[in-house]
Protein backbone atom coordinates (compact mmCIF):
# COMPACT_ATOMS: atom_id res chain seq x y z
CA UNK A 1 0.00 0.00 0.00
CA UNK A 2 3.05 2.21 0.24
CA UNK A 3 3.73 2.15 -3.50
CA UNK A 4 3.67 5.30 -5.60
CA UNK A 5 0.25 6.45 -6.76
CA UNK A 6 -0.68 5.00 -10.15
CA UNK A 7 -4.05 6.70 -10.32
CA UNK A 8 -4.63 9.95 -8.44
CA UNK A 9 -7.92 11.84 -8.61
CA UNK A 10 -8.37 15.01 -6.60
CA UNK A 11 -11.72 16.79 -6.46
CA UNK A 12 -12.72 15.52 -9.89
CA UNK A 13 -16.07 16.73 -11.18
CA UNK A 14 -17.77 15.80 -14.44
CA UNK A 15 -21.02 16.61 -16.16
CA UNK A 16 -22.97 14.52 -18.63
CA UNK A 17 -25.52 16.43 -20.61
CA UNK A 18 -25.12 19.43 -18.24
CA UNK A 19 -26.06 17.18 -15.32
CA UNK A 20 -23.41 16.84 -12.58
CA UNK A 21 -22.54 13.16 -12.37
CA UNK A 22 -19.24 13.34 -10.45
CA UNK A 23 -19.26 15.88 -7.65
CA UNK A 24 -15.71 15.95 -6.35
CA UNK A 25 -14.12 12.51 -6.34
CA UNK A 26 -10.90 11.80 -4.46
CA UNK A 27 -9.38 8.47 -5.34
CA UNK A 28 -5.83 7.20 -5.15
CA UNK A 29 -4.68 3.78 -6.29
CA UNK A 30 -1.14 2.80 -5.35
CA UNK A 31 1.15 0.48 -7.25
CA UNK A 32 0.27 -3.15 -6.64
CA UNK A 33 -3.12 -2.42 -5.12
CA UNK A 34 -6.40 -3.99 -6.15
CA UNK A 35 -9.18 -1.48 -5.61
CA UNK A 36 -12.87 -2.20 -6.15
CA UNK A 37 -15.21 0.61 -7.08
CA UNK A 38 -18.67 -0.14 -5.73
CA UNK A 39 -22.00 1.62 -5.71
CA UNK A 40 -25.57 1.45 -6.90
CA UNK A 41 -26.63 1.74 -10.55
CA UNK A 42 -26.17 5.32 -11.70
CA UNK A 43 -23.87 6.27 -8.83
CA UNK A 44 -21.17 7.34 -11.30
CA UNK A 45 -18.78 4.39 -11.31
CA UNK A 46 -18.50 4.11 -15.07
CA UNK A 47 -18.31 7.86 -15.42
CA UNK A 48 -15.45 7.96 -12.91
CA UNK A 49 -13.60 5.30 -14.91
CA UNK A 50 -14.29 7.02 -18.21
CA UNK A 51 -13.04 10.30 -16.77
CA UNK A 52 -9.80 8.60 -15.75
CA UNK A 53 -9.16 7.30 -19.27
CA UNK A 54 -10.22 10.57 -20.87
CA UNK A 55 -13.41 9.48 -22.59
CA UNK A 56 -15.46 11.87 -20.46
CA UNK A 57 -13.89 15.31 -19.92
CA UNK A 58 -13.44 16.33 -16.28
CA UNK A 59 -14.89 19.75 -15.60
CA UNK A 60 -12.78 20.28 -12.50
CA UNK A 61 -10.14 18.72 -10.28
CA UNK A 62 -6.91 16.94 -11.11
CA UNK A 63 -6.24 13.54 -12.61
CA UNK A 64 -2.80 11.96 -12.72
CA UNK A 65 -1.75 8.61 -14.17
CA UNK A 66 1.62 7.22 -13.08
CA UNK A 67 2.42 10.63 -11.63
CA UNK A 68 1.80 12.43 -14.94
CA UNK A 69 -1.16 14.78 -15.45
CA UNK A 70 -3.65 12.96 -17.66
CA UNK A 71 -3.51 15.64 -20.34
CA UNK A 72 0.16 15.00 -20.99
CA UNK A 73 0.07 11.24 -20.32
CA UNK A 74 1.11 9.31 -23.44
CA UNK A 75 2.31 5.98 -22.10
CA UNK A 76 -0.90 4.15 -22.90
CA UNK A 77 0.67 0.73 -23.27
CA UNK A 78 0.93 0.70 -19.45
CA UNK A 79 -2.88 0.63 -19.17
CA UNK A 80 -5.30 -2.15 -20.03
CA UNK A 81 -8.98 -1.27 -20.17
CA UNK A 82 -12.17 -3.32 -20.15
CA UNK A 83 -15.19 -1.14 -20.87
CA UNK A 84 -18.66 -1.84 -19.51
CA UNK A 85 -20.44 -3.34 -22.46
CA UNK A 86 -22.73 -6.13 -23.37
CA UNK A 87 -21.38 -6.38 -26.90
CA UNK A 88 -18.56 -4.62 -28.70
CA UNK A 89 -19.42 -5.96 -32.12
CA UNK A 90 -19.20 -3.52 -35.00
CA UNK A 91 -21.15 -3.64 -38.22
CA UNK A 92 -18.66 -6.04 -39.83
CA UNK A 93 -17.80 -9.52 -38.55
CA UNK A 94 -14.50 -9.79 -36.71
CA UNK A 95 -12.77 -12.79 -35.20
CA UNK A 96 -11.76 -13.13 -31.59
CA UNK A 97 -8.12 -12.82 -32.67
CA UNK A 98 -8.80 -9.62 -34.60
CA UNK A 99 -10.54 -8.01 -31.64
CA UNK A 100 -7.84 -8.99 -29.17
CA UNK A 101 -5.11 -7.83 -31.57
CA UNK A 102 -6.50 -4.30 -31.33
CA UNK A 103 -5.37 -4.28 -27.71
CA UNK A 104 -1.80 -4.92 -28.77
CA UNK A 105 -1.54 -1.80 -30.95
CA UNK A 106 -0.11 0.28 -28.13
CA UNK A 107 2.92 -2.03 -28.11
CA UNK A 108 3.56 -1.85 -31.84
CA UNK A 109 5.18 0.74 -33.99
CA UNK A 110 2.80 2.03 -36.69
CA UNK A 111 0.60 -0.99 -36.10
CA UNK A 112 3.09 -3.46 -37.56
CA UNK A 113 2.79 -6.83 -35.87
CA UNK A 114 5.86 -8.94 -35.17
CA UNK A 115 6.11 -12.54 -34.04
CA UNK A 116 6.07 -11.50 -30.39
CA UNK A 117 2.82 -9.61 -30.91
CA UNK A 118 1.06 -12.59 -32.46
CA UNK A 119 2.37 -14.74 -29.62
CA UNK A 120 1.05 -12.23 -27.07
CA UNK A 121 -2.41 -12.43 -28.63
CA UNK A 122 -2.40 -16.23 -28.39
CA UNK A 123 -1.13 -16.05 -24.82
CA UNK A 124 -3.83 -13.59 -23.75
CA UNK A 125 -6.53 -15.81 -25.25
CA UNK A 126 -5.08 -18.71 -23.33
CA UNK A 127 -5.22 -16.72 -20.09
CA UNK A 128 -8.99 -16.31 -20.36
CA UNK A 129 -9.57 -19.83 -21.68
CA UNK A 130 -10.65 -18.76 -25.16
CA UNK A 131 -7.75 -20.13 -27.20
CA UNK A 132 -9.98 -22.67 -28.96
CA UNK A 133 -12.33 -19.90 -30.17
CA UNK A 134 -9.57 -17.74 -31.68
CA UNK A 135 -10.89 -17.99 -35.23
CA UNK A 136 -14.58 -17.65 -34.39
CA UNK A 137 -16.53 -14.49 -35.02
CA UNK A 138 -17.15 -12.49 -31.86
CA UNK A 139 -20.80 -12.34 -32.84
CA UNK A 140 -21.00 -16.08 -32.34
CA UNK A 141 -20.00 -15.84 -28.67
CA UNK A 142 -22.16 -15.79 -25.59
CA UNK A 143 -22.17 -12.70 -23.38
CA UNK A 144 -19.78 -14.19 -20.88
CA UNK A 145 -17.40 -15.46 -23.56
CA UNK A 146 -17.48 -12.03 -25.11
CA UNK A 147 -16.55 -10.49 -21.79
CA UNK A 148 -13.58 -12.84 -21.54
CA UNK A 149 -12.43 -11.71 -24.99
CA UNK A 150 -12.58 -8.11 -23.83
CA UNK A 151 -10.47 -9.01 -20.82
CA UNK A 152 -7.94 -10.72 -23.09
CA UNK A 153 -7.87 -7.55 -25.19
CA UNK A 154 -6.94 -5.57 -22.08
CA UNK A 155 -4.28 -8.07 -20.98
CA UNK A 156 -2.60 -8.48 -24.36
CA UNK A 157 -0.56 -5.28 -24.05
CA UNK A 158 0.90 -6.62 -20.78
CA UNK A 159 -0.21 -3.52 -18.88
CA UNK A 160 0.95 -2.36 -15.45
CA UNK A 161 -2.47 -1.00 -14.62
CA UNK A 162 -5.73 -2.76 -15.37
CA UNK A 163 -8.96 -0.73 -15.35
CA UNK A 164 -12.07 -2.87 -15.67
CA UNK A 165 -15.71 -1.83 -15.62
CA UNK A 166 -17.78 -4.77 -14.40
CA UNK A 167 -15.53 -7.45 -15.91
CA UNK A 168 -17.61 -10.20 -14.32
CA UNK A 169 -20.97 -9.11 -15.69
CA UNK A 170 -22.62 -12.11 -17.28
CA UNK A 171 -19.69 -14.44 -16.59
CA UNK A 172 -20.66 -17.77 -15.02
CA UNK A 173 -19.18 -18.83 -11.71
CA UNK A 174 -16.75 -21.34 -13.22
CA UNK A 175 -15.40 -18.72 -15.62
CA UNK A 176 -15.28 -16.17 -12.81
CA UNK A 177 -12.99 -18.56 -10.96
CA UNK A 178 -10.77 -18.85 -14.05
CA UNK A 179 -10.64 -15.07 -14.39
CA UNK A 180 -10.01 -14.62 -10.68
CA UNK A 181 -7.10 -17.04 -11.00
CA UNK A 182 -5.78 -15.12 -14.02
CA UNK A 183 -6.08 -11.89 -12.10
CA UNK A 184 -4.34 -13.38 -9.07
CA UNK A 185 -1.36 -14.34 -11.23
CA UNK A 186 -1.27 -10.84 -12.69
CA UNK A 187 -1.45 -9.28 -9.22
CA UNK A 188 1.38 -11.49 -8.05
CA UNK A 189 3.41 -10.16 -10.95
CA UNK A 190 2.78 -6.69 -9.54
CA UNK A 191 -0.07 -5.37 -11.67
CA UNK A 192 -2.32 -2.64 -10.25
CA UNK A 193 -6.07 -3.06 -10.64
CA UNK A 194 -9.03 -0.71 -10.43
CA UNK A 195 -12.29 -2.47 -11.13
CA UNK A 196 -16.00 -1.81 -10.87
CA UNK A 197 -17.96 -4.62 -9.28
CA UNK A 198 -21.43 -5.21 -8.00
CA UNK A 199 -20.50 -8.20 -5.92
CA UNK A 200 -17.03 -9.22 -4.94
CA UNK A 201 -17.60 -12.89 -5.70
CA UNK A 202 -14.50 -15.01 -6.32
CA UNK A 203 -12.41 -11.84 -6.50
CA UNK A 204 -13.02 -11.05 -2.85
CA UNK A 205 -9.71 -12.37 -1.47
CA UNK A 206 -7.78 -10.28 -4.00
CA UNK A 207 -9.30 -6.94 -3.14
CA UNK A 208 -7.25 -4.66 -0.91
CA UNK A 209 -9.59 -1.73 -0.73
CA UNK A 210 -13.08 -0.73 -1.72
CA UNK A 211 -14.28 2.69 -2.75
CA UNK A 212 -18.03 3.16 -2.66
CA UNK A 213 -19.72 5.88 -4.68
CA UNK A 214 -23.16 7.35 -4.15
CA UNK A 215 -24.57 10.12 -6.31
CA UNK A 216 -21.13 11.03 -7.61
CA UNK A 217 -19.48 11.30 -4.20
CA UNK A 218 -17.14 8.94 -2.39
CA UNK A 219 -19.12 7.41 0.44
CA UNK A 220 -16.52 5.00 1.74
CA UNK A 221 -12.85 4.40 1.10
CA UNK A 222 -11.29 1.61 3.10
CA UNK A 223 -11.30 -2.12 3.66
CA UNK A 224 -13.73 -3.99 1.44
CA UNK A 225 -17.04 -4.97 2.96
CA UNK A 226 -15.87 -8.50 3.61
CA UNK A 227 -18.30 -11.18 4.51
CA UNK A 228 -17.95 -11.29 8.27
CA UNK A 229 -18.58 -13.88 10.95
CA UNK A 230 -19.88 -17.18 9.71
CA UNK A 231 -19.61 -15.98 6.09
CA UNK A 232 -15.84 -16.04 6.35
CA UNK A 233 -15.70 -19.62 7.54
CA UNK A 234 -14.43 -22.04 4.92
CA UNK A 235 -17.05 -24.41 3.67
CA UNK A 236 -19.82 -22.02 4.51
CA UNK A 237 -22.51 -22.49 1.92
CA UNK A 238 -24.65 -19.61 0.84
CA UNK A 239 -28.14 -20.97 1.34
CA UNK A 240 -29.59 -17.90 3.01
CA UNK A 241 -31.51 -15.33 0.97
CA UNK A 242 -29.34 -12.77 -0.69
CA UNK A 243 -30.70 -9.64 0.95
CA UNK A 244 -28.95 -10.64 4.15
CA UNK A 245 -25.88 -9.09 2.54
CA UNK A 246 -27.44 -5.71 2.11
CA UNK A 247 -27.87 -4.65 5.74
CA UNK A 248 -24.44 -6.08 6.43
CA UNK A 249 -22.88 -3.95 3.74
CA UNK A 250 -24.63 -0.72 4.64
CA UNK A 251 -24.04 -1.35 8.33
CA UNK A 252 -20.34 -1.51 7.69
CA UNK A 253 -20.31 1.59 5.58
CA UNK A 254 -22.47 3.96 7.55
Amino acid sequence: MSGEPVIALRGVTAELGSRPVLRGIDLTVHRGEVVALLGANGSGKSTAIRTIIGQVPASGGEIALFGTPRRTFRDWSRIGYVPQRTTAAGGVPATVTEVVSAGRLSRTRFGLFRKADHAAVRHALGLVGMADRAKDSVEALSGGQHQRVLIARALVAEPELLIMDEPMAGVDLASQEILAQTLREQVERGITVLLVLHELGPLEPLIDRAVVLRDGCVLHDGPPPRALGQHALPGHDHVHPHDEHTPLRTGLLS
Binding site: R74, A102, G103, L105, G111
Partner: peptide, 21 residues
Protein backbone atom coordinates in the same frame (compact mmCIF):
# COMPACT_ATOMS: atom_id res chain seq x y z
CA UNK B 1 -1.58 0.86 -44.41
CA UNK B 2 -3.63 1.88 -41.39
CA UNK B 3 -5.99 -1.10 -41.38
CA UNK B 4 -5.23 -2.15 -37.80
CA UNK B 5 -5.63 1.38 -36.47
CA UNK B 6 -8.80 2.05 -38.45
CA UNK B 7 -10.20 -1.32 -37.42
CA UNK B 8 -9.58 -0.55 -33.74
CA UNK B 9 -11.14 2.91 -33.92
CA UNK B 10 -14.14 1.72 -35.91
CA UNK B 11 -14.70 -1.28 -33.67
CA UNK B 12 -14.51 0.43 -30.28
CA UNK B 13 -13.64 4.10 -30.14
CA UNK B 14 -13.45 4.24 -26.36
CA UNK B 15 -11.04 1.34 -26.16
CA UNK B 16 -8.95 2.72 -29.02
CA UNK B 17 -8.45 5.91 -27.04
CA UNK B 18 -6.93 3.91 -24.19
CA UNK B 19 -4.50 2.22 -26.54
CA UNK B 20 -3.21 5.71 -27.28
CA UNK B 21 -4.47 5.92 -30.85
Amino acid sequence: GLRRQLFAVSQDEEFARVTGL
